[in-house]
Structure formats: C-alpha cells, structure tokens
C-alpha cells in the first residue's frame, strides 16, 4: 500500500471547496503535530528506561514511578500516532480483494469503500462515546496512578490523549469518505508527482 493512498496531504489539483481544503489542511497540521509528539515520546521512552536501568547500577537510590510512566507512555505513543498512521494507510487491512475491486470494478468499489469508511466512523464514534465520559470522570474525580505519599500521576492527561487520538482518526475517516463521495477515489497524488 502506497504512503499516500489514504487521503494524505493536500491534493495537487485545485480544491473544489475552499472550506473543505482549509479543514483538510487544519487536520493535516494537527495530525503532523501529534505525530511529532508521539515520535519524540518514543525517544523519551527509550531514554527514560535506559536511565532507570543504568541508574540503579550507578546510584544507590532508584527512581519512583518509572513503571507507571512507561505504562502511560505506551498508550500515549499509540494514540498520538494513530491518526497519522491511518493517514499513511498503516491501519491494518487485507487489501487483496479491495484493490482488485478498485482496479476492476470501480463502481462497486466506490460503494464498498463508502461502507467501510462509514463503519470506521461508526467504530470510532462508539469508542469515543465510552472514552469521553471516562476522561471527564478521571479529570473531575482526580483519578491517579501510583500510591499517595510515594508517587502519583493524574490519569486524565492520558485519557485526553486517547480521546484526541480517536477523534483525529475519526476525522481522517470522514475526510477519506468525503473524497470518495466527491471524487470517486481515495487516491491522492503525492506532492510534486
């Protein structure tokens, strides 16, 4: 699957709708920022674990809360990257039949792709229906990980990342759907092509 198949990056053709184009650019910006944070986070994760592992050898006093931070980091990294991974066509799918239809039966494929994007939107709407109240609870009721008096870290920031990650992925599905409906194709040329 090519990098640019899933409706990534602004179209090289003139946009039909200025508002849609601006929304698309805004989403691209957001996805890129979240992607950068997620990528930097991986580096931090590596450093954090290395410092902890070597630190216990060289310092008498090890660090509190590394376990908790690592556990939250994994969730953070995944949901920071999920939207961009979707934009780059990295959300796992078995594309044999799908691509065959796209090439051989574009009319059928258009219905198929529309239904699949709608199902994707439905899925993330359901996840958000559950995740948003969880995030609000975590914020309002001060949920934390760790032990009071030793090390605690609030739970709401990571819940916020989950919600944001699912939200931008949902918006990415909406954009692909929009392109399929408008142009009959999710294919976008890479910049400069």
């Amino acid at each position: 699957m090519s990098e640019y198949e899933q409706g990534a990056l602004p179209s090289s053709g003139a946009p039909k709708s200025l508002i849609a184009a601006k929304l698309g650019l805004g989403l691209d910006g957001l996805l890129s920022v979240m992607n950068s944070i997620g990528s930097g986070w991986i580096f931090l994760l590596m450093v954090m674990i290395c410092v902890d592992a070597t630190g216990r050898t060289f310092f008498a006093h090890p660090f509190h809360g590394v376990n908790e931070l690592v556990e939250m980091s994994i969730v953070g990294i995944v949901f920071m990257q999920l939207g961009d991974a979707t934009r780059r066509g990295r959300l796992t799918r078995s594309d044999g039949f799908y691509n065959l239809m796209r090439a051989r039966a574009p009319g059928f494929w258009r219905y198929q792709a529309t239904i699949f994007e709608l199902l994707g939107i439905t899925f993330f709407v359901i996840v958000l229906t559950g995740a948003i109240p969880e995030m609000i609870d975590a914020y309002q009721l001060d949920y934390f990980v760790g032990e009071e008096g030793l090390f605690t870290f609030p739970e709401w920031p990571i819940k916020l990342v989950i919600v944001l990650g699912c939200l931008v992925t949902l918006l990415q599905f909406v954009r692909i759907l929009w392109r399929i409906v408008r142009t009959g194709s999710a294919q976008i040329s890479p910049p400069g092509a």
Binding site: H61, H64, N67, G146, G149, L150
Partner: peptide
C-alpha cells in the same frame, strides 16, 4: 519509607 529503600509498585 525512611530506610533508604525505593518502593517499586508492580
């Protein structure tokens, strides 16, 4: 706490 040990939850 107070004995120079670090507690690690797991």
């Amino acid at each position: 706490q107070g004995f120079g040990a670090a507690g690690v939850s797991g």
